[in-house]
């Protein structure tokens, strides 16, 4: 079972050639119903043939699947609307000098690579060291904007993908080198949830990354204007809980997911600060929360 089991399928329409194609996110993967053999089209593209835009988009998605800039730029909660005009991004892409536009950014951080992906990557034009750093960054930013332009449903799913990539148990060492980025990512996402949960000001929330066994810790100290919430949560919370829209379910803070699922998931919730987590089943309801389901407690 994976974090993305708690999310329904999402679709977006993107321009491709003379028409428009559907891009589908399902079970953690971006698929292209209009291009059933996208792998072959990638190979053709690498050999100099035309590569359809939506095939390029799946490549871009894969390249940014561990890009921490997604967490820096992407939404913090359903109410945090991140809007990118696809036409504006297309214009930016078009304004790049030809050599830049063809430059393919390197993966943000090397993630687990399947043999198929490795073969595919080997056939892509040589990149990385030969691309000027500034040029690569600019291309990275345009690519990130292209992904964000897919809309909130995809923004949350991409954020979940990035978080899950970094939450792998064997990446604890790498995570340690990015503690400030994860501190900000966790704080920025728990803060609006805590406001919804306890009415506490988001500026009073600080979360540090939790490593090791257990779900983490959470404590509220002080009263009145001195009230502060300090928490320690694993990076996996961002994927398992937050990206699936279940940070707060029925007035409870969800701190861990035991059995991901959609529309039913088994989670552990905190009824109040200082309380022990309680295992409950939550049910997804349709909502207009940026493509995320709203979760209600179904049973204990």
């Amino acid at each position: 079972m994976s974090w993305f089991d708690s999310l329904p399928t999402a679709e977006a329409t993107v321009p491709c050639g003379a028409g428009a194609h559907t891009v589908r996110w399902a079970a953690g993967q971006l698929t292209l119903p209009a291009h059933p053999d996208a792998e072959a089209e990638l190979v053709l593209g690498a050999l100099g043939g035309d590569k359809p835009e939506c095939v390029t988009l799946t490549e871009t998605w894969a390249r940014h699947a561990a890009d921490l800039a997604v967490l820096t730029t992407g939404p913090r909660c359903a109410a945090d609307r991140v809007r990118v005009d696809p036409e504006e991004v297309a214009a930016q892409r078009a304004s790049l000098p030809p050599a830049w536009a063809q430059a393919v950014s390197v993966p943000m951080v090397a993630g687990p690579t399947s043999p198929a992906r490795a073969r595919r990557r080997a056939m892509l034009p040589a990149t990385g060291p030969r691309i000027d750093e500034a040029r690569r960054r600019q291309v990275d930013r345009i690519e990130l904007l292209e992904l964000l332009a897919l809309g909130p449903e995809f923004q949350f799913r991409l954020s979940g993908t990035v978080s899950a990539a970094w939450a792998e148990p064997d990446r604890a060492g790498e995570r340690a080198g990015h503690r400030p980025a994860f501190t900000a990512a966790l704080t920025g996402r728990l803060a609006p949830a805590a406001e919804h949960w306890l009415g506490i000001g988001p500026g009073t929330v600080t979360v540090t990354p939790h490593e090791g066994p257990g779900w983490g810790t959470l404590a509220v100290t002080g009263t009145g204007t001195a009230r502060r919430l300090h928490a320690s949560l694993p990076v996996s919370w961002l994927a398992d809980v937050w990206a699936c829209g279940m940070a707060v379910a029925d007035g409870h803070l969800v701190v861990a997911v035991d059995e991901p699922g959609y529309p039913l998931a088994r989670v552990r919730v905190l009824p109040a600060p200082g309380a022990e987590p309680v295992a409950v089943t939550v049910r997804a309801e349709q909502s207009d929360r940026g493509g995320l389901p709203a979760w209600e407690v179904a049973s204990d």
Binding site: A69, T72, V82, R83, V84, R137, R141, L144, L145
Partner: peptide
């Protein structure tokens, strides 16, 4: 730069 981009996509 990330902050600037974050401001921009939030209008």
């Amino acid at each position: 730069a990330d902050f600037q981009l974050s401001l921009r996509v939030r209008g």
